[in-house]
């Protein structure tokens, strides 16, 4: 909830930016953040324009996936240790550091920075500030491209389970009502005109049938969501001796994405979920008539 509140605050800020920060930034073309703060500045010789920085940042909305980003990092660190890329000490430092960062975010003490772009860099920077060089090694054999795809899938998998439970609660209440009113008579309609008498229980169970199919679609969608892109790195895989089965097991993924190019780029699983959601809302909208 506090994330939503902060997001509202951010949107409010952005709407007011043309009169303050953005206007100033656009005229001066200087950044409020120092170039050294960003871990990917090596290739760049000039600081980022402040407007562009705010325009391209995603941290104000992707921070809601912080738990899943940290879960992915924990699994990745354990896998790197398992294959000998990280030492046990480095791994422990990373895991303990991530616990602290997670607690800070949970308690609302974490300072999110737009100049760090996204949830991944904000967390990694904080981790590195806490534990030093081990924090910089966490990203070995990984890219934000496969990291974010993994975060979205982990996040969506959790939300699907919450939604499935709530859908079942709705169905349970509908079925209970149908049982209670199994012999209550009401008009049945065709073309908006009274056609034949029906029972109210029968009418309610019609909605339940639609919601049942929606639930089946959701669980089918979950199978494809629950597939792991991590290990695909930026696009082509990685030169490190990673063990994707190990990471998948750690994260509870049923399957592993079989092609790195596909894994980092396609979002069909999100579209599939929104198509489930569209059908559900279409049914609930009819139900609302």
């Amino acid at each position: 909830m506090d994330i939503i509140v902060r997001r509202e605050a951010f949107l409010y800020t952005v709407r007011n930016l043309p009169n303050s920060v953005l206007h100033k930034a656009m005229s001066e073309n200087k950044t409020p953040s120092t170039a050294a703060e960003k871990p990917w500045t090596g290739r760049f010789t000039e600081p980022t324009d402040a407007f562009v920085e705010a325009f391209t940042a995603s941290v104000e909305f992707d921070q809601r996936m912080y738990k899943h980003d940290i879960a992915g990092s924990r699994a990745h660190a354990r896998m790197l240790t398992h294959v000998g890329v990280l030492t046990a000490d480095e791994c422990n430092a990373i895991l303990n550091g991530l616990d602290e960062v997670e607690a800070e975010i949970h308690n609302g003490e974490f300072q999110w920075s737009i100049s760090l772009e996204d949830v991944h860099m904000n967390i990694e920077k904080r981790l590195t500030d806490k534990i030093g060089d081990a924090g910089k090694k966490l990203h070995t054999g990984r890219s934000r491209n496969d990291q974010v795809a993994t975060d979205v899938r982990l996040y969506l998998r959790d939300e699907i389970d919450t939604i499935a439970a709530e859908l079942k609660r709705l169905q349970g209440n509908i079925i209970e009502l149908a049982e209670r009113e199994h012999d209550t008579i009401m008009p049945g309609f065709t073309h908006l005109q009274t056609a034949q008498p029906i029972t109210f229980g029968h009418h309610m169970l019609a909605w339940n049938e639609m919601l049942q199919r929606d639930g089946e679609r959701l669980m089918d969608c979950r199978k494809r969501v629950n597939t792991m892109p991590l290990g695909s790195a930026a696009l082509a895989g990685t030169t490190y001796p990673i063990d994707r089965e190990f990471t998948a097991k750690e994260l509870g993924f049923e399957r592993i994405c079989q092609n790195s190019l596909d894994a980092v780029s396609d979002r069909d699983f999100v579209i599939e979920f929104t198509s489930f959601a569209s059908l559900l809302m279409m049914h609930m909208s009819r139900f609302s008539e």
Partner: peptide, 18 residues
């Protein structure tokens, strides 16, 4: 193929749908 920055725009529609 493969990743493009466009993909950052996947989150807000997803979050709001959820």
């Amino acid at each position: 193929l493969a990743y493009n920055k466009d993909n950052q725009e996947d989150k807000e529609p997803l979050f709001d749908t959820i």
